[in-house]
Design a binder for these strands. Structure first.
Lengths: 227, 227
DNA sequence: GCAAAAGTGTTACCGGTACACCCATGT
DNA sequence: ACATGGGTGTACCGGTAACACTTTTGC
C-alpha cells in the first residue's frame, strides 16, 4: 500500500552486491575483492555499490558490473535482499544480491587487476565479510536452478565449445559428475545446439566437434516436476 | 563492498508488500485492499508497509501480516525487489514483495473487514496499482515452485483434510487438473501424511478419510530435474 | 437401483542411469 | 599397436499418464 505521509518513515541506504561467476580451468569461479579498510580489512568481499536516486536495483548492478569487469549487456539476475539491521557494523545498509555470468575470455582483466580482484573457485572460497558468503550460496542455488531448467553456457563458455566442455561446466556448477554418454544424449534431445564443421583437437587426437548456440536462442519455459 | 563515505549516497524509502494467499472455495485467493487516495483511488493493492530503521525486511513483512490478518508465526518468503525509480508516482520507494500462506479459517476476519480487505481468486484479479500485479505473478511462481518440490498444504488446508481437498488445492495452485488416481498414488509414495480414523462425509455419501501432517514435518530437499 | 464421490488396479510409455563398447588419430 | 579422449548402443528400472474399474452409502 505504502500510502500516506512518507516523511514519517525512515530512509535507508540501499546497495547491490554482485556475485560474478565465470568458468575457467574447469571450475566455476567467483570474482572477489580485498576489503581495504577496518574492520575486517584483508577479508574478501563481493563488488558492490549503492543504489542511486534515480536508479533501479538492476541499473545499479549493471553499473557496478560495467565498472568492475568492463562489460555491459551481460546476463544478470536478482537473487535476494539481505537486510539484517546489523549486517554491516558501521551503518544500516540493505543490500540486494545479484549474480552475473561472464565469459572468462571477454572481460577486462586490467580493470579487475587494477582493483586487486581475484577469481576464487566456489569450492575453495576464502573468508568473506558480512553476509557475502550467504549471498554466494544463494546465487549458486539460483544458477543451479537455472541450469536445471534450461541449457546454459552461452554466457560462460567460449562462442564455440565442445560437448565435453559443456559437460564439465555442468559438473562444475552442480559439483558432481554427469555421465558422458547420458549427458550427450540429453543435449541432443534438446535440439538447441548447432554443430559446426570445426573440431577442437587441443585435448584429443581424434578431435571433438565444436558447437554453438543459435543466435536467437531463447530458453524454453522452466519445466519443473509435476507433483 | 559498500565501503567508504556513506553520506555521499542517497537514502531511499524501502517498503514490503505482502501477497497473502489462502485456499477457499476450491480456489487460491489473494487478499487485496482498496486504495483510498488519489491517484488510482479505488484500484486494489497489496497490503504493505515501510521498513523501519532497526527492522529487517522479514521483520517488516511479519509486522504487516500481524497487523493485517492478526496472525504471527505464519509461513512467509521473500520474493523479489521492485525498484523502478518511477514505480510509485509520488515518491521513490523500493518495495520488496513477500508471499505468505494462511489457513482460511484461522485469520482475523474482523481485522480484514475493518480495512475493507477482500479476497480475490488468482484467476480473476481486479486492476491493481503500480507493479502489484507483477508481484502477485512472481509470488505465484514461487508458490508453484515450492509446491512442486515438497508437499505443501499445512499452511493452507485445515488441520484435518481429505486427499481430495489436497488434490483440489494443487489443481488451484497450478491451474490444471491432476488425475485423481495418480495424485493419490504420488501422495502415498511420499509417506508423509498420516491417515486419521475420521471421515469427512460432507461431500460424499461414502465419506473420505481425513489426513494430517505429522507435527514435526520438515520438507525434504528440493529435487529439481537433473540437467 | 442409481448417482456420486472415494478409492484401487492395469497398462503403456518415456526418460534416466549404468555401463559396455566402438571410433579416430598422434605418437 | 596402443593409449586417449570422442562418441554410440543397449538393457534395465522407476515414475508418470491415461483410464477403466470397484466400493460405499444416501436418496
Amino acid at each position: 500500500m505504502t500510502q500516506p505521509a512518507y516523511v514519517e518513515y525512515p530512509k535507508i541506504h540501499v546497495a547491490v552486491d554482485c556475485v560474478i561467476f565465470t568458468y575457467d580451468e574447469e571450475q566455476l569461479k567467483v570474482l572477489l575483492y580485498p576489503r581495504n579498510i577496518e574492520p575486517r580489512k584483508g577479508d574478501w568481499s563481493l563488488m558492490g555499490g549503492f543504489v542511486g536516486d534515480r536508479e533501479s536495483l538492476e541499473d545499479a548492478a549493471r553499473r557496478v558490473l560495467q565498472q568492475t569487469v568492463g562489460l555491459s549487456n551481460i546476463f544478470m539476475e536478482q537473487v535476494h535482499g539481505f537486510s539484517k539491521p546489523n549486517r554491516e557494523p558501521d551503518e544500516r545498509v540493505i543490500s540486494v544480491a545479484f549474480y552475473a555470468l561472464i565469459c572468462n575470455d571477454k572481460h577486462n582483466r586490467e580493470l579487475v587487476e587494477e582493483h586487486k580482484g581475484e577469481w576464487y573457485s566456489i569450492t575453495n572460497l576464502p573468508t568473506l565479510i558480512f553476509d557475502h558468503h550467504e549471498m554466494i550460496t544463494a546465487a549458486l542455488q539460483r544458477l543451479q536452478h537455472k541450469a536445471s531448467c534450461e541449457l546454459i553456457g552461452r554466457d560462460l563458455l567460449p562462442e564455440k565449445f565442445t560437448l565435453t566442455q559443456m559437460n564439465n561446466l555442468y559438473n562444475a556448477i552442480f559439483q558432481r559428475t554427469f555421465d558422458q554418454g547420458n549427458f550427450r544424449k540429453k543435449i541432443a534431445s534438446l535440439k538447441v545446439l548447432i554443430q559446426t564443421p570445426y573440431k577442437d583437437t587441443s585435448t584429443s587426437k581424434k578431435g571433438a566437434y565444436l558447437y554453438v548456440f543459435p543466435h536467437n536462442y531463447v530458453a524454453p519455459d522452466c519445466r519443473i516436476v509435476k507433483i
